Simulated scan of single mutants.
Amino acid sequence: MANSPAYKVRLGLITATVWDNDGFYSVDMSRSYRNSEGQWQNTATYSHSDLLNIAKCAERAEIWISRKINHAQQ
């Protein structure tokens, strides 16, 4: 069974997925798009119009991780 993400945030077509690896957090960023058959796919290639949502998703992921780390240290 695959591990579930610890946290996910989506803005527009951009998604940040946070993974918890025993207290070490990593983040995957992806952009969704529809292929020629109309099926949803993901890519790690971004256009200029994606950059603001990437920054916002990264900030929200960082805030979530910081809260988790701070809560664990208390």
Rank of each mutant, 00 (worst) to 15 (best):
A16C: 03
I65K: 10
Y46S: 06
N3H: 06
G38L: 07
R10D: 04
H48G: 08
K68P: 01
I54N: 00
F24K: 15
E59G: 15
Y7K: 11
I63M: 03
A6W: 03
H48K: 11
A16I: 05
A44R: 15
D50N: 12
G23P: 12
C57T: 15
Q74D: 08
T43A: 09
K8H: 00
S66H: 07
E62L: 05
T17F: 01
I65C: 08
I14F: 05
D28T: 12
N53I: 02
H48R: 10
G23H: 14
A16F: 00
T15Q: 10
N35R: 13
Q41C: 14
R10L: 01
G38W: 10
R31A: 12
M29W: 01
L51T: 03
I65R: 10
L11M: 12
T43R: 12
R60S: 06
Y33W: 10
N53K: 00
W64K: 14
S36A: 13
T43F: 03
R31P: 00
D22L: 13
N53Y: 01
Y25V: 09
L52S: 11
G12D: 02
H48N: 11
F24D: 06
S26H: 06
I63Q: 11
R67N: 13
A55Y: 02
Q73T: 08
T45P: 01
S66M: 09
S36D: 08
